[in-house]
Simulated scan of single mutants.
Amino acid sequence: MNFRITVLCENSVGPISGTLGEHGFAALIEPSGGEAILFDTGQGLTLLHNARRMNKNLSAVGKVALSHGHFDHAGGLLPYLQECGPRRVYGHTAIFTPRYRVKDTGECLPIGLPQGREQLERAGAAFDLSTAFRELAPGVHLTGEIPRVTAFETGDQGLYRDCTGQELDVTIDDQSLVLETGRGLVVVLGCCHAGVINTLEHIASTTGRRDVYALIGGTHLAFCGREQAEKTVQAVKEWGIRKIAAGHCTGFAAAARLSREVPREFQVAQVGYTLEV
C-alpha cells in the first residue's frame, strides 16, 4: 500500500502561502486505495483553513482517529464535524478524562477536550473507543494503549487529573498511527506522551516488525527531563530510522539535537510537510 501523509496543523508553517500555525497537530493520511483518514484535529483554529489552502477535501475523510484527549489534538473535532458531517471517531477509552496543567504559581489550566462526549455525539461523532492495537483500514493500525517499559521515559510531570495537583495524569490514552508501506513502517505520532521508544517497542512486540522507515509528529521531548531527551535520541539512532520529521511538542533543543545527531534523516514537520511512501 502507498500513502501520502500531509501535516495540516502544526506549531510552525512551511512555504505554502496563507497557511497558519497553532500549538497543535493534525495529519491527513491518504492511501492509494480506500478512504482518507484524519489523525488528530489540532485546536480547531487552523484545520479547515489549512486544508482549503492546500486543496485537501476533508469531506472525503472516512474515519477520524484521535491520539489522545488533549485540546491541541482533539479541539478541532467539533468544527470538523460541523463542516463535514458525521464520522466514526476512533480513540482510547480514556480520552474524556478531565485534565489540567497546574503551573508553579498554582494556576490551574484545563487542557482536556473542550467539548464533552454528548455535545460531540450530537454533532455527529460515532465514537469507537478501545485500548487495543487494531486495524482501522488495510495497512493502517492504531497502537492502542502503550505499555510504559523503559526506565528513562518518565513523561511530563506537570499534568494532573485535578486542579490541586494531587492526581498525576500519565496520559494513558496516548496512541500513535502505524502505516504498512513497501519501504517499511511509518509511525505517525500525536504527542507521544508514552515515550517514543515505548511506542516503537510496543509496535515491534505487537507486529513482530522493527523496520521503521519514518517517524512523523510530536515527540513530547520539550516537556521531559534531560535524561529522557538524551537517551531517546540515542535509542532513535540505534533504530536506524530513515526519516524523522519531528515537530509540535519536540521543542527547539531536542530538535536541534536530532538535527546534529541524524542530519540526513531529520526534517521539520511544519504545516504542509508531505511524505509520499
Rank of each mutant, 00 (worst) to 15 (best):
L168W: 06
L66I: 11
T143R: 14
S130Q: 06
I146N: 13
D162I: 10
L129R: 03
A246C: 12
G76A: 12
E153S: 07
V196R: 01
G21S: 13
G76M: 10
L109N: 03
E261D: 12
G69H: 09
K63A: 12
G85I: 08
C163R: 15
I29K: 08
V188T: 04
E167N: 14
W239Q: 10
G208A: 12
H141V: 06
C9T: 11
H220M: 06
L221G: 01
A26C: 14
S67C: 04
A123M: 07
R101P: 00
G182A: 11
Q115L: 00
A204N: 07
E276V: 12
T171I: 14
R183P: 01
D128A: 02
A36L: 04
L179W: 01
A123E: 10
D211K: 08
G155N: 03
Q166I: 00
A74K: 02
F152S: 10
F252H: 11
Q267T: 00
R101C: 03
A254S: 15
T219R: 10
G44E: 00
K237D: 02
A214H: 02
T207S: 13
L47H: 09
V102Y: 01
L168T: 05
P98L: 09
T274H: 06
H73S: 05
C84D: 12
L8K: 07
A65R: 09
A94I: 00
D104C: 05
E167A: 14
I29V: 15
P110A: 13
T41N: 07
E167K: 15
S32G: 15
G272L: 10
L38K: 02
T150Q: 08
V187Y: 05
Y90W: 14
V271P: 11
V102A: 01
D211S: 11
L189P: 09
L185P: 01
L45V: 05
T131A: 13
A255E: 07
T250F: 05
E167G: 11
V186W: 12
D156C: 13
R210H: 13
R226G: 04
M54P: 03
L120G: 00
A204G: 05
T19F: 04
L20M: 06
E180V: 15
G112P: 07
T93D: 05
N11V: 06
R134T: 01
N198E: 02
S67K: 00
Q157R: 01
L66Q: 07
E135V: 07
A126W: 09
E180R: 15
V268W: 06
G139A: 03
T181Y: 12
W239I: 05
F252Y: 11
A94S: 03
I16D: 04
P110N: 12
T250W: 06
T199L: 01
P263I: 02
G225W: 04
L81C: 10
R4L: 06
V186S: 15
K237G: 08
E35P: 03
G116S: 03
V196T: 05
K231W: 12
A123D: 08
V64P: 05
C224Y: 02
